[in-house]
């Protein structure tokens, strides 16, 4: 178990030393959101109505941006080969990556949502619903993202392939996420949680399978 937590701690340490990747991601998230008013006009009512969709689209794009770093470096410098010789099974390694990736990409985005709420003119309740829906839905995006990164870990130009692979699979998350953020009924939130649980439970095993398949 020490290895598991050491791996999470190392991911976080590497990310912060490499020039605050989490911060860059948050900037991307806020900037994409700020693009919408330029595209659809700064009409406050329109923006407030679109806000859940805008927040979720920006979050999805920002999560895709961070995929590349999950396995690429570890594969290239041999860390992955060595981790395969650790006491942890590869599944646990992928599980640790899922947790670390959520902490390093999804959590900062959720923390940054108040800024978006101000920019998009959401009220406190609307912001709360959006943040809650992100909290319930981002684990699914993380799990899918790790799977995409695992399948493309050994490819030199996998950077673009992983998002293409993931985007169609993320559509359900987007549908229920926006529905949950718009509020009213409980069902979408429960669906969102179900998708997240399922994805997070399966991704370590499927991810390890993909890494092993790509190893030879």
């Amino acid at each position: 178990m020490t290895g598991f937590f050491a791996l999470i701690a190392r991911e976080i340490r590497l990310s912060t030393r490499r020039g605050g990747e989490a911060l860059t991601l948050v900037m991307f998230f806020v900037m994409v959101t700020a693009l919408f008013p330029f595209a659809v006009g700064p009409d406050r009512e329109l923006l407030a109505r679109l806000a859940p969709g805008i927040v979720w689209t920006s979050a999805l794009l920002a999560m895709l941006l961070g995929l590349d770093r999950i396995f690429r470096d570890d594969h290239a410098d041999g860390s992955l080969a060595l981790l395969n010789h650790g006491q942890l099974p590869l599944e646990a390694v992928v599980g640790a990556k899922v947790i670390a990736h959520w902490l390093l990409t999804a959590l900062p985005l959720i923390v940054a949502t108040p800024v978006l709420a101000v920019l998009l003119g959401m009220d406190v309740e609307g912001w709360g619903r959006s943040a809650l829906s992100l909290l319930c839905g981002t684990p699914a995006l993380t799990g899918l993202g790790v799977l995409g990164a695992a399948t493309t870990a050994g490819l030199r130009r996998g950077g673009l392939v992983a998002p293409i692979l993931i985007l169609p699979l993320a559509v359900p998350v987007l549908i229920f996420g926006v529905a949950a953020a718009e509020g009213g009924i409980l069902a979408p939130t429960l669906f969102l949680l179900a998708i997240s649980l399922l994805t997070c439970a399966l991704s370590p095993f499927l991810g390890a399978l993909a890494l092993r398949a790509g190893d030879d």
Partner: peptide, 24 residues
């Protein structure tokens, strides 16, 4: 409201993005 997409405020926001991009 705390934020309005007013011309000056908006270009100041973009200015902040430019600074942050350079720092990144």
């Amino acid at each position: 409201t705390f934020w309005e997409w007013d011309g000056r405020m908006t270009s100041t926001l973009l200015m902040l993005f430019i600074y942050l991009g350079l720092i990144a």
